[in-house]
Amino acid sequence: MNNLSSLVHLHFDKSANELGDIEKRVLAKAHARKVISTDINAALSAESSFGERMADNIARIGGSWAFITTFLVFLAVWCVVNTIILATGAFDPYPFIFLNLVLSMVAAIQAPIIMMSQNRQAERDRFEAAKDYEVNLKAELEVLSLHQKIDMQVMTEIAALREDIAKLTRKLGD
């Protein structure tokens, strides 16, 4: 942990106690040279309930062109059947009151499901942003670490050059 504390002091301008959970997790992963998993689908699908997955699927289907086209065809067929084909004995004659009832019920059921799916999408976006932050923070830590290694190498080379210059100066003075 002492090595980790020195990393905290080196990379962050605060103590280890002041770091948040994300920073601690990223620093530990960077120290252990582990990759941060960015598989958002696996992480979120593991936590989602059956109802949430069903809401996502219903919203995916309800927002597709296939559904819109099929529903338009259904409405056209309904109107044609009840006005032209069954003109005298139509089960839902022209102002299509039963059709309005069906459409209202579909909208009443579909709206909360779509809102649930949108809430899950917002949660997914927040989770993805947090993962992006972790990856960016780890990349920044790696860049800082590389800078430190390069600086140490340059300092070592400068010290070696100074020593060589000192030796050459002594040889010239002799």
Results as ranks from 00 to 15, higher is better:
Asp164Thr: 08
Glu123Leu: 13
Arg53Cys: 07
Val80Ala: 15
Leu27Ala: 06
Val154Ala: 13
Asp164Tyr: 13
Ile150Glu: 06
Ala66Asn: 00
Arg33Asn: 11
Trp78Tyr: 13
Leu72Thr: 12
Thr69His: 01
Ala129Ser: 05
Phe98Arg: 03
Val154Gly: 14
Arg124His: 05
Leu72Gln: 02
Pro93Leu: 06
Asp13Ala: 15
Gly63Trp: 00
Val77Glu: 02
Asp164His: 15
Glu128Ile: 02
Val143Glu: 12
Leu19Gln: 07
Leu146Arg: 14
Lys24Ile: 08
Thr169Ser: 14
Val106Thr: 04
Arg33Ser: 05
Leu75Glu: 15
Arg162Trp: 02
Tyr94Glu: 15
Ala87Val: 08
Ser117Gln: 04
Tyr94Lys: 14
Lys171Gln: 11
Asp174Lys: 10
Arg120Trp: 09
Ser104Ala: 15
Ile22Arg: 14
Met54Tyr: 04
Met152Asp: 14
Val80Tyr: 07
Glu134Pro: 01
Val106Asp: 00
Glu157Asp: 12
Leu141Phe: 02
Phe50Ser: 12
Met1Trp: 12
Ala108Val: 03
Leu168Phe: 10
Lys34Asn: 08
Thr38Gln: 01
Ile114Asn: 07
Val143Tyr: 10
Arg170Tyr: 14
Arg25Val: 15
Ala130Ile: 07
Ile84Trp: 08
Leu7Ala: 05
Val80Leu: 08
Ala87Gln: 05
Phe127Trp: 04
Leu86Glu: 07
Asp92Arg: 03
Val143Ile: 14
Cys79His: 02
His147Met: 13
Gln110Gly: 00
Asn2Val: 14
Leu75Ala: 07
Ala66Ile: 00
Phe74Gly: 03
Phe50Val: 07
Gly51Cys: 09
Met105Thr: 08
Ala111Phe: 06
Leu161Ala: 12
Ile36His: 10
Thr156Phe: 08
Ala159Pro: 02
Ile22Tyr: 15
Leu103Ala: 11
Val73Pro: 01
Lys138Met: 09
Ser6Phe: 14
Arg33Glu: 10
Ala59Trp: 00
His31Thr: 04
Phe96His: 06
Phe67Met: 03
Ala139Gly: 13
Leu172Trp: 14
Glu52Gly: 06
Glu140Met: 12
Ala160Thr: 10
Ile85Arg: 06
Lys29Ser: 09
Glu157Tyr: 12
Asp132Thr: 13
Leu172Asn: 10
Val26Tyr: 12
Asn82Val: 03
Leu137Cys: 06
Lys24Arg: 11
Leu103Thr: 04
Ser48Glu: 12
Leu141Arg: 05
Phe71Trp: 01
Asp56Pro: 04
Tyr133Gly: 01
Glu47Phe: 10
Gly20Trp: 08
Leu72Trp: 00
Asp132Gln: 14
Asp174Arg: 12
Ile150Phe: 13
Ala129Gly: 04
Trp65Thr: 00
Phe98Leu: 03
Ser64Val: 01
Phe67Tyr: 10
Ser45Arg: 10
Ala28His: 12
Lys14Arg: 14
Asp92Met: 02
Ala76Pro: 05
Gly173Val: 06
Arg170Ala: 13
Asn100Ser: 10
Ala107Leu: 05
Glu23Ser: 08
Asn2Thr: 15
Ser64Cys: 02
Lys131Tyr: 06
Pro112Thr: 00
Lys131Ile: 11
Gln148Pro: 09
Gly62Met: 03
Ala107Asp: 01
Arg60Met: 03
Leu161Pro: 09
Asn17Thr: 07
Glu140Phe: 05
Val102Lys: 03
Gly89Arg: 07
Asn41Leu: 14
Val8Gly: 11
